[in-house]
Each structure stands twice: as C-alpha cells, then as structure tokens.
Amino acid sequence: MHTETDIKTKIKNYIIESTFDDVEKIKDDTLIFEEGILDSMGLLFLIEFLQEEFNLTTTDEELVVENFQSINSMITFVESKM
C-alpha cells in the first residue's frame, strides 16, 4: 500500500530525473505541461512510469488535464485507481 507521501515522492523524483529540471522549479501544484516541463512524449513516458510503479492502466477517457496537470492531480488520480 502506497501512502500519499510515497506517491508524491515517487512522482516528483521521476519527473526530476527524467527532465533534469531543478528540484526547486517543480512544486506540488506546478502545471507540468503548461510550464513545458513535460511534452507529449514526456506524458507517454509518465503513463508508462505510473503503470510500472503503481500497476495502474490509464484509459483514453482518463487522459484529461484534471488527472495530469500537476503532481497534486496525479496523486489524486493514482489514489483513485488503487
């Protein structure tokens, strides 16, 4: 069972490691796509990461900005699927 802190740390570390971005730049409510931190390939790799790390599958219908726009949104999305 993953706690909210676990999920947050794993997602944040993944984004920082995959983008080589400054840790200070990525807050929990930073708009990841709006700010250009991840692009469409970044989103695909993120979906793969969520599947491998939390064993969850994202469907076409779930691919909406509300589920992916920030680390906070992703935490809510991951928790809703567990």
Partner: peptide, 14 residues
C-alpha cells in the same frame, strides 16, 4: 490522436 486540439494536455496516440 483522439484528443481535441483545444485539450490542455499534450496529444498522445491511440
């Protein structure tokens, strides 16, 4: 791509 261009998420393929 199944998303609308006005979607605020980058396009991904199905």
């Amino acid at each position: 791509i199944k998303q609308d261009a006005a979607s605020n998420l980058p396009p991904v393929f199905s």
